[in-house]
């Protein structure tokens, strides 16, 4: 449940950051589908976690060191919302200036997604399809998997 709320909150963040499309999809995916998936997995496996055998000190230390290194790395990064940041200098201005004339679609996210980066999106659709096939192959039919296990 907390997980769903977390997703909805990050959808809100995306909305504030002007990413309408992304906020849209995060709200539908996070609050709807992935929460249901998590719950059904929990129903299929164990509900309670066992008491951990290791002490939590070492992981905490690793995490703190990594986090400190990352924070040190951000000191050279451009400020939040800075229009002069390197990200905004290279490809994006071309998309923003040319896409209305070239593609004729007002929503730039759609035109970049479907047209300029069509290959990329084709690959991603294939990944989604493959994941679906993988889920089917792993846990689809109970009888068949049981027979295979007996043989193996």
């Amino acid at each position: 449940m907390l997980f769903g709320i977390y997703s909805l909150l990050s959808a809100g963040i995306f909305l504030v950051l002007d990413a309408l499309d992304v906020a849209f999809i995060e709200a539908a995916v996070g609050a709807g589908i992935s929460t249901v998936l998590m719950l059904s997995t929990l129903a299929l496996t164990e509900r309670k976690e066992k008491e951990p055998r290791h002490k939590a000190v070492l992981p905490l230390l690793v995490v703190l060191v990594t986090g400190a290194a990352l924070v040190y790395g951000t000191l050279d990064m451009p400020d939040f919302g800075d229009p002069k940041a390197p990200v905004h200098q290279h490809v994006a201005p071309r998309y923003i200036q040319q896409s209305p004339a070239e593609i004729g679609v007002p929503n730039m996210v759609t035109s970049v997604l479907a047209s300029y980066r069509g290959y990329d999106t084709l690959g991603e659709v294939t990944v989604i399809f493959t994941a679906g096939v993988g889920v089917l192959a792993l846990i689809a039919d109970r009888r068949r998997t049981r027979r295979r296990r007996r043989r193996g």
Binding site: V87, V112, L113, D120
Partner: peptide, 9 residues
């Protein structure tokens, strides 16, 4: 728009 596209997918 570019990061939006990447993250959307």
């Amino acid at each position: 728009p570019l990061p939006h596209v990447l993250i959307l997918t």
